[in-house]
């Protein structure tokens, strides 16, 4: 027992010393390649706050990590997708956003604030929104035009399909192909989607949510899922990479800034959110990584090329049948999780 106390004391003093001497730090927990380095550099230059950028590749991994750190406040900002904002908010894992410290919130698209997931945006501020659609390498995929999610099930793509490493998105396409909602909470429908997806598994070469464009660029996969921003970035290196709005409907999502409970540097987190909401910064981000900014003032600053890029900014027709990701609740999540584990473990 004494030893334990001693270890604790040692830990306390050592961690205590180290945090005092270092310059101010903002711990940003974010998806891979989801924030241009230039933005971080400019923020540091202006405020002197160093941004430490650590990455995750799924909402589940981010959530598990935060739970593991158990409100120790080691992360100052994270970027969950809509349905996790709702979940984390309800579970008390988030710090309230102090809107008085924010600048530029009023410039955000009214359609993307005050949503069901977080009324009045008490806990979250929209960062970017985007779509998850079909991608294929036009130089390698022959025959009929690729139009629908169901085309992935074609035998000729065996060993050439890529899926994102994202439970909800993968099930979304399974559900849509069967004609159900991508936000289904019905265990029977989820099970049916699982069974449909197991038929796809022999074709699946890899799951990737770190940089879904890479397997296409590296020539490993020729068809499959991709995020629109990744498609934009991928097209720069590989013009034959096509982005398709599938007939069954594309997946639409929104990622928001949240401040985890007890964040050590909530002050800097607010500063950073305000910094990102500046029109010129938001525009820079959207142009650089290809996702759509919810910032209306920023959209006016975009170059025509980006503003008219249907991959980044879909037209209303593109969004026919599109579904916005919603929170399905803990019970349904457990069902999804179980089948997801089974899907990834199946041979």
């Amino acid at each position: 027992m004494k030893k334990l106390a001693l270890a604790g004391l040692l830990a306390a003093t050592l961690t205590g010393c180290s945090s005092q001497e270092e310059p101010q730090v903002l711990n940003l927990y974010n998806w891979s390649e989801y924030m241009p380095q230039e933005v971080l550099d400019r923020f540091e230059e202006e405020t002197g706050i160093q941004v430490v950028y650590t990455t995750y590749d799924s909402n589940e991994a981010m959530y598990a990590r935060l739970k593991l750190l158990d409100e120790s406040g080691q992360y100052d900002l994270a970027l969950p997708s809509t349905y996790y904002v709702n979940k984390m908010r309800k579970e008390g894992l988030l710090e309230k956003i102090n809107h008085e410290k924010l600048e530029g919130f009023e410039k955000l698209d009214p359609e993307l604030v005050n949503l069901e997931i977080d009324p009045d945006n008490q806990y979250s501020v929209p960062y970017l929104w985007g779509t998850t659609g079909l991608a294929y390498d036009a130089s390698d995929v022959e025959g009929n035009e690729v139009k629908a999610w169901a085309d992935l099930w074609d035998d000729k793509y065996e060993g050439r399909v890529m899926l994102t490493n994202d439970m909800r998105e993968v099930f979304h396409i399974g559900l849509r192909v069967l004609g159900h909602s991508g936000n289904s909470t019905d265990p029977e429908e989820i099970k049916a989607a699982y069974e449909k997806l197991t038929e796809l598994m022999p074709s699946v070469r890899t799951f990737n949510s770190d940089a879904p464009r890479m397997p296409y660029l590296e020539g490993e996969t020729d068809i499959g899922m991709i995020w629109n921003g990744e498609a934009v970035m991928g097209e720069e290196d590989m013009p034959s990479l096509e982005y398709v709005y599938p007939e069954e409907g594309i997946i639409v999502w929104l990622d928001s800034f949240v401040i985890p409970k007890n964040a050590e540097n909530a002050e800097a987190a607010h500063q950073f959110i305000s910094f990102v909401m500046r029109p010129e910064i938001s525009a820079l981000i959207s142009e650089d990584i290809g996702y759509a900014t919810p910032n209306l003032a920023a959209r006016e600053l975009l170059s025509d090329e980006v503003a008219n890029d249907r991959t980044s900014y879909p037209t209303p027709e593109d969004l026919t049948n599109a579904e916005f990701q919603k929170d399905v609740g803990d019970d349904a999540m457990q069902v999804y999780t179980r089948y997801w584990e089974m899907l990834k473990s199946g041979q």
């Binding site: 589940e60 598990a64 739970k67 890899t206 990737n208 990834k344």
Partner: peptide
């Protein structure tokens, strides 16, 4: 390709993903 091929992947997922 990020599938659960090894026991190690299953264990890691239970702790760092599926909880």
């Amino acid at each position: 390709g990020s599938r659960n091929l090894l026991v190690g992947n299953v264990i890691k997922n239970q702790f760092l993903d599926a909880r």
